[in-house]
Amino acid sequence: MNKKTYSDEVLIAYLDGEGDYAPIDEINAAIGQDATLAARIDAMRFDTDSIKDGLSGLLSINSPVPELPRKPTRSQGNGYWYTGIAASALLALGIGYGAGNLGNEPPQRGWKAYVASYQALYSTATLSSVNSSEENMGAELLRASVELGKVFDIKKLKASTDVTYKRAQILNFKGKPLIQLAFLSTAGEPLALCIVKTQKPDGGVSQPTVMEGMNAASWAKDGYEYLLIGGTDEALLSRLADQYSKSI
């Protein structure tokens, strides 16, 4: 008698009771006459309830439902727009929403406000485990330099003893590159120097302001606009802004 061979996939479907994808009656009949088949099926058995139980543990982790807007406002594009942490979450992940993207946002919410929302999501842990090699840091900075058309010198980023340079990220705002250089202060506070191209004339370092609960200062130089943001140490931020506005 010819014994029919079943693929592993079909036998798993049989074990899962998926009758559309496995001839269950046929296999049931074959098991009694085919010890090899029976052994194969036995070897594939796994208590799927234990998977369900294990995964159910993840349901109890407290992850609060985000604030969901009740009355959406139609933007000029095709999508709704939202404010606060939800928009920050989208920016943090570098995505737009609706048919458009962040370009659909009201004009008063400029790049600095978005950077502030993004930076507000940072904690010490975000950066403490980032320990790239010198080579990787150099490669990152090279990519950032190419994106922005501005050369960054890693030595200048590492010159301060108050903060440790961690990484460079290429972000995007309204289709234009936004470079984020991330630092961690000796006190463990994350800071970021963010840079975009601008048409604005040169301008000196602004007085520190507070954005999203963090200190921030900005300046413009040679066709680029800078925002240094992070932490609650105003003296540190002013010192770094002064240093970077001259050296970078």
Partner: peptide, 13 residues
């Protein structure tokens, strides 16, 4: 967290 939140917003959108 970010993905689940983004999914909610995308769903509303």
């Amino acid at each position: 967290d970010d993905l689940a939140q983004a999914a909610c917003l995308r769903a509303l959108d």
